[in-house]
Design a protein around this nucleic acid. Structure first.
Lengths: 228, 228
DNA sequence: ATTACATGATAGTAATACTATTATATTTGC
DNA sequence: GCAAATATAATAGTATTACTATCATGTAAT
């Protein structure tokens, strides 16, 4: 399994980058250190100039990989969703029972991220924090429709669709499978954020909090429509 | 009723502004036109300089009211939540039955905003669009904990708590009233956004879509714990 | 050794998000 | 009605941002 994972590469829309950061050492350091830096100082304060200083490289060299910091954010979050999708597919693929399958899927997308040794230059735990704090900013823009057309959000959409399909397989007559799937994915990020910054607005205080909350929420919504 | 509404002023944390925009004509025009402009060009492209040109005033004069565009966003969104809270309290206050009361509350916070003639200089329909597109940016910052301590998000939190309390009154043993309340408020904005930009990720396509989706979601979650 | 390509260094630009200062209206108190 | 106080406007200035452009240097492949 470790071997298998080591040969996996998360496939990201090539329009998001100018030059593939996976293709060079500098590229990998851009990814590695930008994750740490965005987490430390936030996306607004993050600049290519500061990143250049940190990795002992030059601003202009970073522009060879990404034409803007917005594109870098799209890259990082796409990578995260691709990585999570991989976990999802890998862990649910062999499950035959639709209910059990959906349960496992909810667990995977709502749990706190654990480290993954397969991608040495990417810290998934910290990347998860970035997704919680910054993902919305990647699509809450005036350019969203154009960028959506270009396929920049493809992995995320595929992820929502996968979960929506699982919901459909459990309850074929349920009227809101896509909305429920998007609520779980987006709502999970939100509950994790609330846990850290507005603790009175959530009940998900322990480690498994969001998983338990969303598992109950989804299955009680589907109960009246259960298949079979 | 119209008379009553005309005498109501939405109370906003005074630390958010330097000078109360409700206290002068210029202040009101700042609010009125900033809503239109942020909706048109998006919060990132919006600047006080551009706003000054639009209202025939000067950048420096706008800084007398708000020390930054971030604070102006906090003001606008606080106003929106205060306005919505008013609608919520007004419409549910006289309802005795907890189930009916919660149902009405969900309807009010998930429906598409309708015009309100009580506040002539504020277009609530457009302000609602701003909240959908920009509200997350007001708290997804490195300053969130400090600003939360200052009470900048007080109205929103009160709103979530009100709905959480209503949930609790319907189902006193339900374990996640605050999470469910925050899911409805935040999720509603998200479903409205998806409707406009990622229609394949939602099933809430018609006008009453989000209301029906969240009403079913909440009541099915509470069903096993129903009071009485 | 030559060429190609990746990276680095430097400079420059228009715009942003302000602050500071001074000037001119407008309102208010007497 | 006038002075004083206050509100608003005009102008200038600053550090930073988010880039683009050009040229130099290092390194790797033929």
């Amino acid at each position: 399994m470790e071997q298998l994972l080591h040969s996996v590469k998360i496939g990201i829309n090539e329009k998001i980058f100018v030059k593939d950061p996976e293709s060079s050492n500098l590229g990998k350091r851009i990814i590695e250190e930008s994750i740490l830096m965005i987490n430390e100082i936030g996306f607004e304060s993050f600049t290519f100039k500061k990143l250049g200083v940190k990795i002992g490289s030059n601003e202009s060299s970073i522009y060879r990989y990404f034409e803007s910091k917005h594109k870098l954010l799209l890259y990082l979050t796409s990578w995260y969703w691709g990585w999570l999708e991989y976990q999802l597919v890998f862990s649910t693929n062999s499950i035959g029972d639709p209910i059990e399958k959906l349960g496992k899927a909810i667990e995977i997308v709502t749990r706190s991220t654990v480290e993954d040794s397969a991608f040495t230059h990417i810290n998934e735990v910290i990347l998860n924090k970035i997704v919680i704090n910054e993902y919305s900013k990647s699509y809450l823009t005036k350019e969203v429709d154009m960028e959506n057309k270009e396929g920049y959000f493809g992995i995320y959409k595929r992820m929502v669709n996968r979960i929506g399909d699982m919901i459909h397989n459990v309850a074929p007559h349920y009227a809101f499978p896509a909305s429920l799937a998007s609520t779980v994915l987006e709502g999970s990020l939100h509950q994790h954020f609330l846990k850290d910054h507005f603790s009175s607005l959530t009940d998900c205080h322990e480690k498994g909090g969001p998983t338990q909350y969303f598992t109950e929420l989804v299955f009680s919504a589907l109960k009246p429509e259960l298949h079979g």
